[in-house]
Design a binder for these strands. Sequence first.
DNA 1: GCCAACGTTGGC
DNA 2: GCCAACGTTGGC
Length: 151
Amino acid sequence: MHFWLMKSEPDVFSVDHLAARPNRTEPWTGVRNYQARNFMRDEMRPGDLAFFYHSSCPEPGIAGIVRISGRAYADATQFDSASEYYDPKATRDHPRWFNVDVTLVRKTRLFSLQELRSRPELASMLVLKRGNRLSIMPVSQREWRAIERLL
DNA sequence: GCCAACGTTGGC
DNA sequence: GCCAACGTTGGC
């Protein structure tokens, strides 16, 4: 069992969008960074939990908890020439990008980036690292529990 | 809108 | 394989 943090711009896809989906489940498509892809493809397992993090918005921070509901599979948007995530170098035989499905466990209060920074016990979090641009990153069990206690 | 950070691309 | 140029992320 591993813990994660997954970023999404709420203008594009928010925790409320996820709450409105059938079965509160959605494929996490559009990741186009190899390190983030590798986390999904190689390390995420059904049952893992992740914080749903709102980024590039007035109040960045954790807005919900999701469960990884299936193993990674080829991201369909890479094959769709009409999609902004289209990748002409990807083929059905050799897909380049993968996604998992995520299911909303619950919305949380907004646990802001500012508050994350203010907690000494959370100082180790990757999301707080200067220059970090990963959209998917691991969270330690210790960090996870510390945040859950404060939600 | 700015800009630091850093991943990707492509010429060589 | 190097590395400069370029593009993107994301907080502010």
